[in-house]
Design a protein around this nucleic acid. Structure first.
Ligand SMILES: Nc1nc2c(ncn2[C@H]2C[C@H](O)[C@@H](COP(=O)(O)OP(=O)(O)OP(=O)(O)O)O2)c(=O)[nH]1
Ligand SMILES: [Mg+2]
Ligand SMILES: [Mg+2]
Ligand SMILES: [Zn+2]
Length: 566
DNA sequence: GCCGTTTTCGGCCCGACTGTTTTCAGTCG
């Protein structure tokens, strides 16, 4: 898949055009880049089918450049732009307060190309003399370079969410209303910062409190309606305060995404309205603002669940009144992947069951590793049967939760599973997954996975693409073929809910839904506190437009048994 | 550069905070 590479090229072109003060092209290139990134389809396939023009935001000239890249591995336009501006734009932009205009001036006036150049110039006091710069600007730059150097990737949803909720709890008692917004409310898999919306009439007091909390490393900005802080550990938090009359429109604004907002505001314009965080206005009259729902309805749209607000077609569907009833966070009745001490988990089965009951699950499956995966404590048949005896006891002990005795088998290089049929036949749930030989030709890999799915004992294809966010690329797989075969064989595709996996991801869930293949949520818990991550799985399902019927975890234990006894 | 139930050419979202300015540009949300 060259989607990411190509998107990166177009983002870079956008940035370079922006520095040259070229109008609107940056927007066009960014939009194309985003749509290529979230295509959910291999762009080379689209190229082969000669359908590049069907990608939103891709017109004649960008399509030509995609062709150019696929065929020559380079895009002339970018090479030329880079020659004119041979600087490390990425690292310079990562310095807070440095944007395209300042970076351009710094290069033109002082020849600054990278962070080292920047640091030297600032230390030598050269920057303060430039027009539009000053002493304070120079000091800020120097201060921010250090953070830019150590700043890492975006944060994982599963790890930020609890921290964000802690901050909300601290503020909650002091304000009238509070809500998480931004990418956290949209439940995006990675999070750039924490965005919090508040209603209060004691704005300056709250801002004082917010900017003086424990763990605040730096106050980046502070005003009456908006402040930004950075906590130790690098997480940035934005706080926005509005009056109650604007709560709904502010929540709409602050939830985003940016592109979703821009499109809504365009629709408002077309209706001779104006939309901003303070409300929807007809002339000077506020016709919506208190409730988010009325902002959408006054624009002629269904209310859109935050998870869908990525400007990937949801607005057109809302206009037609066709937003589906997505799976809800309390629709899921159980967890279909977890490990215990019997393989590589760190809690006992009793502890896992107790915690699952606390969560409110009505069924769970133990899916400990079996077979050749010895590093993960892979059990042989005898040991797994011993585990079964224990599970029988647990089944007797607990009458409020159904426990399935499952297993996670490995898909060998040739597509066979690494345990015998008689072993597979004993399990109530069979997960199949790839744990080795990740690098294979796309066709070979697809055949390998399909062969596993066609195994009559397999119920769930687990962590189907093997990606780990920011750590490991997805395997080469023709997902559409895999989904098709899975559907025919009554195999569910997993949404692995572990924070760094989230595999399938949102766009691939959408493709699965389109093919009507069933989905299974499993936390892949290796400790009892991982069990809470099932909500991340639901979030991914929602972001992929899944409804209740698409997800087998919403079945009653009875109906789930039927599905598993295929 | 892209796009269209107001357009195939003329627009392209709208506002807060900071530092540099003497009325606003740049960056960010
Ligand atoms: N109308 C409008 N809204 C914006 C713009 N930039 C940001 N917003 C809104 C929508 C965003 O979801 C929200 C919060 O901004 P963030 O920069 O934190 O983005 P977001 O949380 O979506 O993603 P993140 O994970 O933080 O990178 O503010 C903009 O340029 N125009
Ligand atoms: Mg954010
Ligand atoms: Mg933010
Ligand atoms: Zn494991």
């Amino acid at each position: 898949m060259k989607n990411k590479e190509i998107a990166k090229i177009f983002y870079e072109i956008a940035d370079l055009y922006e520095m040259q003060d070229v109008q609107f092209k940056p927007r066009a290139y960014r939009k194309a880049a985003q749509n290529i990134e979230s295509l959910g389809k291999d762009i080379e396939e689209v190229y082969e089918q000669d359908e590049l023009g069907n990608i939103p935001g891709v017109g004649e000239s960008i399509a030509e450049e995609i062709v150019e890249y696929v065929e020559t591995n380079t895009v002339e336009r970018l090479e030329k732009l880079k020659k004119d501006m041979p600087i490390d734009l990425r690292s310079l932009s990562s310095v807070e307060t440095l944007g395209p205009k300042k970076i351009k001036d710094l290069y033109n006036e002082l020849g600054i190309k990278n962070l080292d150049d920047l640091e030297n110039a600032a230390k030598e006091g050269k920057i303060r003399h430039l027009e539009g710069f000053g002493k304070k600007t120079e000091e800020n730059i120097l201060e921010n370079i250090a953070f830019a150097r150590e700043k890492g990737d975006r944060f994982l949803l599963g790890y930020v969410l609890p921290e964000a909720k802690e901050i909300v709890e601290k503020l909650e008692k002091k304000v009238d209303k509070i809500e998480l917004a931004g990418s956290l409310r949209r439940m995006k898999e990675t999070i750039g910062d924490v965005d919090i919306l508040v209603v209060t009439n004691k704005s300056s007091k709250i801002m004082d409190y917010f900017t003086n909390m424990d763990r605040v490393e730096k106050v980046i900005a502070k005003g009456d309606t908006k402040s930004t802080i950075r906590l130790y550990g690098g997480i940035q938090v934005d706080l926005r305060i509005v009056k109650n009359e604007s709560f709904g429109s502010a929540l709409q604004y602050f939830t985003g995404s940016k592109d979703h907002n821009v499109k809504l505001r365009k629709i408002a314009q077309n209706n001779y309205f104006k939309l901003n965080e303070y409300g929807l206005f007809k002339k000077d009259a506020r016709i919506a603002g208190k409730k988010e729902k009325s902002v959408y309805s006054k624009l002629g749209l269904d209310w859109i669940p935050p998870e869908l607000r990525e400007n990937r077609g949801e607005i057109d569907i809302a206009k037609k009144g066709n937003i589906p009833d997505l799976i809800k966070y309390d629709d899921v009745k159980g967890d279909l992947q977890m490990h215990s001490k019997w393989s590589d988990g760190s809690n006992t089965m009793v502890e896992m069951v107790e915690e699952s009951r606390n969560i409110g699950h009505s069924f769970i499956a133990f899916t400990d590793h079996v077979g050749s995966l010895k590093v993960a404590g892979g059990m042989d048949k005898k040991e797994w049967e011993k585990q079964g005896k224990k599970i029988d006891k647990l089944k007797e002990k607990y009458d409020d939760i159904t426990i399935f005795h499952g297993l996670e088998a490995n898909i060998k290089k040739n597509g066979e599973l690494d345990i015998s049929d008689s072993f597979l036949n004993e399990a109530e749930v069979v997960l199949a997954s790839i744990h080795s030989s990740f690098r294979m030709d796309k066709k070979e890999m697809t055949n390998r996975v399909i062969k596993a799915i066609e195994n009559r004992y397999v119920n769930i294809l687990s962590h189907p693409t093997g990606r780990k966010i920011q750590k490991k690329e997805a395997i080469n797989l023709e997902l559409d073929k895999v989904f098709n075969v899975a559907k025919e064989n009554n195999v569910a595709i997993e949404i692995n809910a572990y924070p760094e996996r989230l595999d399938l991801n949102d766009v691939n869930v959408k493709r699965a839904i389109d093919q009507k293949v069933k989905l299974s949520i499993g936390t892949d818990s290796h400790r009892k506190d991982h069990l809470r991550y099932y909500k991340l799985g639901i979030a991914v399902a929602r972001r992929g437009w899944a409804q209740k019927i698409d997800v087998i975890n919403t079945y009653s234990a009875r109906n789930l048994k039927k599905f598993l006894n295929k």
